[in-house]
């Protein structure tokens, strides 16, 4: 075989191999499934177990946060006046979510750099920097700290820094799961669940999904009536309470009479 023929064959084989080799793979997408996607608050509701699962690119850290809408909360600030504690003024606090639950594979500050934690509002320092306190004269570190303490006590804020389970890397990304107890006293509304895939101290990709909490059945009926037809609701409340009182009186009187006559 002549040398140029050998070279041609080698070139054809190499080009064939090159054609068969995979192209530079696209980044694996972040996926997420929240179960249930709607939490129903029925008569015997006492919180719910929420399951989150999905995939992230391999070698990523995962942070999942659940947050409620922003609102304005008004408080009386308490101070000492002699032997007693009195209100020293009103403070209005806004700019932060009503509910914040943060879960991660490792402590958040090990997954992300400071600027990313602040941007995504994922720890107490980041939240404190977002708090807006009015009037400004009352704004202080103490008020912000007290507000956060109150939120932790109400279990509206839970910065767990753990909780996410990672499974062995699969062909497409890495599988994660998270199970957590939904705070039973969280108000009805739409909350946002966000998963962040973190690499090299940055959020590489993220995905959001809504988690709805709705009243259903008898509680929904009562709540709607109270809100939409307050006068009718007021009259119904009075009439039902009076009937309940006289009804119980009637029943207990019968019971006591029977006991007396039995003796």
């Amino acid at each position: 075989m002549r040398p140029w023929k050998s070279l041609t064959v080698v070139a054809i084989l190499l080009s064939g191999l090159a054609a068969r080799a995979p192209a530079a793979s696209p980044p694996e997408p972040v996926t997420m499934k929240v179960t249930p996607s709607v939490i129903s608050m029925g008569t015997f509701y006492s919180g719910a177990r929420v399951h989150v699962e999905g995939t992230v690119p391999q070698a990523s850290d995962v942070i999942i946060d659940v947050r409620g809408p922003e609102t304005i909360e008004v408080f009386n600030k308490v101070g000492r006046a002699g032997p007693i504690w009195v209100n020293t003024g009103k403070v209005s606090i806004s700019g932060i979510p009503t509910l914040l639950l943060v879960f991660s594979t490792r402590p958040v500050h090990n997954c992300l750099c400071r600027s990313e934690i602040d941007r995504c509002e994922l720890d107490a320092a980041a939240i404190k920097s977002k708090i807006k306190i009015e009037p400004r004269a009352m704004a202080s570190e103490v008020v912000a700290d007290e507000f956060l303490k109150l939120k932790y006590r109400q279990k509206s804020y839970q910065l767990a820094n753990t909780g996410i389970q990672m499974e062995d890397p699969a062909e497409v990304g890495q599988h994660y799961t998270l199970d957590f107890i939904w705070p039973k006293n969280a108000a009805p509304g739409t909350y946002v669940v966000r998963v962040c895939a973190c690499q090299g101290g940055n959020v590489e990709d993220s995905l959001e999904a809504p988690l709805k909490v709705v009243e259903v059945g008898f509680p929904a009926m009562i709540a709607d009536l109270a809100k939409d037809r307050p006068a009718t609701y007021g009259i119904i409340s009075v009439v039902v309470a009076v009937l309940a009182g006289f009804g119980i009186d009637f029943i207990t009187t019968r019971i006591f009479k029977k006991k007396i006559s039995a003796h």
């Binding site: 609102t71 509304g189 995905l207």
Partner: peptide, 19 residues
């Protein structure tokens, strides 16, 4: 609670959204 509920309803998200 009513204020929270009111605001929450008005911030409803329609679907899953990617950032």
């Amino acid at each position: 609670m009513h204020l929270v509920r009111h605001v929450a309803v008005h911030r409803a998200l329609p679907n899953t959204t990617r950032n």
